[in-house]
Design a protein around this nucleic acid. Structure first.
Lengths: 186, 186
DNA sequence: TCAAGAAGTAGACAGCGTCTACCCAGGTTT
DNA sequence: AAACCTGGGTAGACGCTGTCTACTTCTTGA
């Protein structure tokens, strides 16, 4: 494991333990036991390092989607949706970083390929449900985009606190069920 | 207009013109023509100033919802949904600031009252549609939360670029229509 | 053996939020 | 009239940040 990879894993651990505001170049360097300028020997700037960290996040998210239990297409799509929410709630800091354009570089090749792979997998799962007669005439990527956005907003607002502060729902599962019901029917 | 209010309006203008990364205390002070320490005479910290700015955003958003054209409850809800997306796309920097809990203070009284007022208005509009037999047995706040999250995610992902980069949809209106269709039927 | 390159160090720079000491004009109190 | 308080502004400092540069050290291949 070279120093570049060690910096990524150190930063990933620091992110999950201390949050987004802790993954500064100097903080990562200190956690890795090197001087404050060392990380820039391996990354052109902070955004490039954090892009590599976010890529780890998208990779983990993708693995969740690729290891869904064998079931009907519909149940697999529902499981993927729940998996997205689960990932966000289990890794709130990583989830935030993955969509913070001021911290990462969206043009980063590894990052954009992984994030679009997540979307493509999602669209594939949608397409398989369409094969059973669910909205057969709509572009699967269009449905995937809408559904993904709904999940993304639910995770984001839940972590933001705008939903949990209101006392009408103790967990995300309840509004999630409403969302899934809206798209996939009762 | 006292100096406190002048700082808020200066910061709001700076935000819309230069984006979130431009609304630093020193940048706002320079734009207002005062010394770098002056803003802290009127706000205890940067987050309090930015919370006041974000409150302006929630107030504007609330006004949109309160000035919907007279129509059926269903069309008014649809108009409110479109209004939310319109607001986000017309004021991307403000929209980002309003949900950046590292920049603002969610506990800020004025801010939290305005943001919850937005949600309450949304729940009221949902309730009026329910009065016409749409999901009559579900808590309107629960439906409002799910629907709001879907819109929020759509706006966020669109501004993030994850949707527009894919060539399957040239505008937000198309995935928005899919979302509205899922919740409110054809 | 020696040159090259990879990796790390230390110092500097500007910009940031925040704190402190100081200043000054206007109105209030004595 | 003199003293005082206070709202508003200024200037300097502190530690933090990302980034740049010059200098070192170590390893590796010719």
């Amino acid at each position: 494991m070279g120093p570049r990879h060690r910096l990524i894993t150190t930063a990933t651990a620091l992110l999950s333990e201390e949050g987004v505001q802790a993954v500064t170049l100097r903080g990562i360097a200190k956690a890795a036991g090197v001087s404050h300028g060392a990380p820039l020997r391996h990354f052109t700037c902070r955004a490039e390092l954090l892009s590599a960290v976010a890529t780890v996040g998208f990779t983990n998210l993708l693995e969740r989607g690729e290891n869904l239990p064998e079931s009907t297409p519909r149940d697999r799509l529902v499981a993927a949706c729940r998996g997205y929410i689960d990932f966000a709630l289990a890794n709130p800091a990583m989830f935030e970083l993955m969509f913070r354009h001021d911290l990462i570089d969206p043009q980063n090749p590894g990052l954009s390929s992984k994030s679009s792979a997540v979307f493509e997998l999602f669209a594939k799962l949608v397409g398989e449900v369409q094969g059973e007669g669910w909205h057969p005439d709509t572009d699967s990527r269009l449905i995937a985009a809408s559904l993904w956005a709904s999940l993304h907003g639910l995770a984001g607002l839940w972590l933001w606190g705008g939903l949990s502060s209101a006392s009408f729902t103790p967990t995300v599962d309840i509004p999630l069920a409403v969302t899934l019901d809206a798209y996939l029917g009762a």
